[in-house]
Design a binder for these strands. Structure first.
Length: 206
DNA sequence: CAGTAGCT
DNA sequence: TCGC
C-alpha cells in the first residue's frame, strides 16, 4: 500500500479503497443515512450554518450548534442513537491507525457543490493519542494541512475518491480544512459532491 | 486564488 | 472562530 508523507505525523494513502469497495461502501452509507439523516450544523454563538451537511456513526457523534462543539450519543434531530460504524469502515481504522482500540465516532461530512471547510483543529476529543483517520468518496477535495498554530505553512493534498489520510502524533492537532471541490472528478455520486468519513477515538480507553 | 485579519 |  502506497503511503505518502504529507507533513510529519500525516500520511496519505491514495487509492486505498478500490472502486468496487467504494461503491459497496456508498450503498451501505445510503442505507445508514436513512436512519441518521444529514443535518445542517451551525456555528457556536453566531448560528452561521456550515456549508457541509453532516451526520455520525458510532457510539458518539460530533455536533455543533449555538451552544458549542461536543460529542453526544444521539442524533440532534431524531434523538435516536447513531447507527453503528460498519465493519468495512472499522477495517480501514484497524489497517492504518496503528491504534489498539476502536474508533468511537465516524463523522460523515457531505460536501455539496461549493461546500468547504475552513482551517480548524480537531480538539474536542479526550484521547489525543489516537490519530484521526479520514476517508474520501466522490469528487476530489482540495484539502490543506499545516501545523499546530495558525499562520504557518500549509501543504495542499488533492483527496480523491478512495483516498485515506491519517494524521496523528505531532500532526494530531494540525490545522486542516477543505478549500473546495474539483467538480466532475468522480462519477461515484450521481449528483456530484464529496463524502468525507472522519474516524476518531473520543474517550480514553479503560 | 491562497492566506489571513477581523468580525460577532 | 470547523464561517465569512
Amino acid at each position: 500500500m502506497t503511503a505518502v508523507p504529507v507533513v510529519p505525523g500525516c500520511t496519505w494513502h491514495p487509492g486505498y479503497l478500490a472502486p468496487a469497495d467504494q461503491t459497496a461502501l456508498l450503498a451501505t452509507l445510503r442505507d445508514l443515512l436513512r436512519q441518521a439523516p444529514l443535518f445542517q450544523p451551525v456555528m457556536p454563538r453566531t448560528g452561521t450554518p456550515f456549508s457541509v451537511r453532516m451526520t455520525n456513526l458510532g457510539s458518539l457523534g460530533w455536533v455543533s450548534d449555538k451552544a458549542g462543539y461536543r460529542y453526544q450519543p444521539h442524533h440532534p434531530v431524531t434523538g435516536e442513537p447513531w447507527p453503528p460504524i460498519p465493519d468495512a469502515i472499522l477495517a480501514v481504522w484497524d489497517a492504518v491507525s496503528g491504534y489498539p482500540h476502536p474508533p468511537e465516532a465516524c463523522l460523515v461530512n457531505w460536501y455539496g457543490p461549493g461546500a468547504r471547510m475552513g482551517l480548524h483543529q480537531d480538539r474536542d476529543e479526550e484521547d489525543l493519542s489516537a490519530p484521526v483517520v479520514s476517508l474520501s468518496l466522490g469528487e476530489t477535495g482540495l484539502f490543506r494541512i499545516g501545523g499546530t498554530t495558525r499562520g504557518g505553512r500549509t501543504v495542499p493534498v488533492k483527496l480523491a475518491s478512495g483516498d485515506v489520510l491519517v494524521f496523528g502524533g505531532i500532526a494530531r492537532l494540525a490545522y486542516h480544512g477543505v478549500d473546495r471541490l474539483l467538480p466532475g472528478t468522480s462519477t461515484l455520486l450521481k449528483d456530484g459532491g464529496r463524502i468525507n468519513l472522519t474516524l476518531r477515538r473520543v474517550t480514553k480507553p479503560v
